[in-house]
Simulated scan of single mutants.
Amino acid sequence: MKLVVTRTLAAASAITAVAVGLAAPALADPPLLNGTYAGGDVLNLWTIATTCGTSGCAGTVSSNQGWTVPATLVNGLWNFKITKPDGAICADGSYAPAYISLTLDPATLAGTITTDSNYDCPGGTITQAPFQLHQVS
């Protein structure tokens, strides 16, 4: 009886060792951004505060230019949109909000800025341009 129990324990230990050895690596923590960042122009600073929990990742981006917007993590990239109400004057004289969408890679601090040449007015052309941040504090 003792021999059977010993063999059973040895087999269970071997199976456990193989299972641990073949287990997939744990997922890395989501990439957070926390601090003050600048682009080429150090006069325009962004303070970014992010966190992740059981319901996902979120944060805020605040500028020393007076705006604060929410940020979300989607497919490993931080996304946020700056909206300036009545930020554009349309050809017909009406006002429309100006939208600027940004996507930022937290690992490289490289991003893409997407704008519409007419913002929310009809007839614009959507353009994308790269940008690069660096952490200042």
Rank of each mutant, 00 (worst) to 15 (best):
T6G: 10
L77K: 10
Q132S: 06
V4I: 15
G39R: 00
Y99W: 09
A14V: 10
G21M: 09
L32A: 08
L9W: 09
C57T: 06
N44Y: 08
R7C: 14
A38C: 09
G53D: 13
T103V: 04
V69E: 06
L22I: 11
P25T: 05
V136A: 05
T16H: 00
I82L: 13
A71I: 03
H134D: 00
S13I: 06
G76L: 04
L9R: 13
T47Y: 01
G39P: 01
Y119H: 14
P31F: 00
T54D: 14
L3F: 10
L27N: 08
T60F: 04
S101C: 01
P122A: 08
D116T: 04
I89S: 13
S94R: 09
A19D: 04
A107V: 07
A58K: 05
K81I: 13
L32T: 04
S117D: 11
I100F: 03
D29S: 15
P130Y: 03
Q128T: 15
A49D: 14
T16R: 06
W67H: 08
A11H: 01
V69L: 01
A107L: 11
L45N: 02
A17T: 09
A10P: 04
T50W: 05
A91F: 07
T83K: 06
H134R: 14
G123N: 03
T16V: 13
D92I: 02
A19I: 13
T108P: 00
P25L: 02
L104E: 01
W78N: 03
V4D: 09
D86L: 07
L9D: 06
A58F: 11
F80G: 00
P85L: 00
I82F: 07
S55H: 09
D105Y: 01
G40M: 09
H134N: 05
T72E: 07
I100M: 11
Y37Q: 05
N44D: 13
A107D: 03
T60S: 12
G123T: 04
P31K: 12
T47N: 08
P130K: 11
W46V: 01
A17K: 03
P97D: 09
L32M: 14
V42H: 05
Y99K: 02
A88N: 00
V69T: 13
S55Y: 11
T36H: 03
L43G: 14
I113V: 15
T36R: 05
A38K: 10
T36Q: 09
G111Q: 00
A24L: 12
V5I: 15
L133W: 11
I15G: 10
A23K: 12
P25G: 06
P31S: 10
A19L: 15
A98C: 04
K81Q: 14
P122N: 11
V42R: 10
G40A: 12
D86N: 15
G59V: 05
C52R: 06
A17Y: 03
P106Y: 01
T127I: 12
T72M: 03
A71G: 07
L104H: 03
I113C: 08
P97I: 01
A24S: 13
L9A: 15
D29M: 10
Q132N: 04
L3D: 14
K81G: 01
P70L: 02
A58L: 08
D105G: 01
G59P: 01
L45S: 00
V42K: 11
A110Q: 11
A14I: 08
C52S: 13
V18I: 14
T16A: 15
D41I: 09
K2V: 14
A98F: 06
T72H: 03
P130N: 14
G123P: 02
N34H: 08
A58P: 00
Y95F: 14
F80E: 00
G93Y: 05
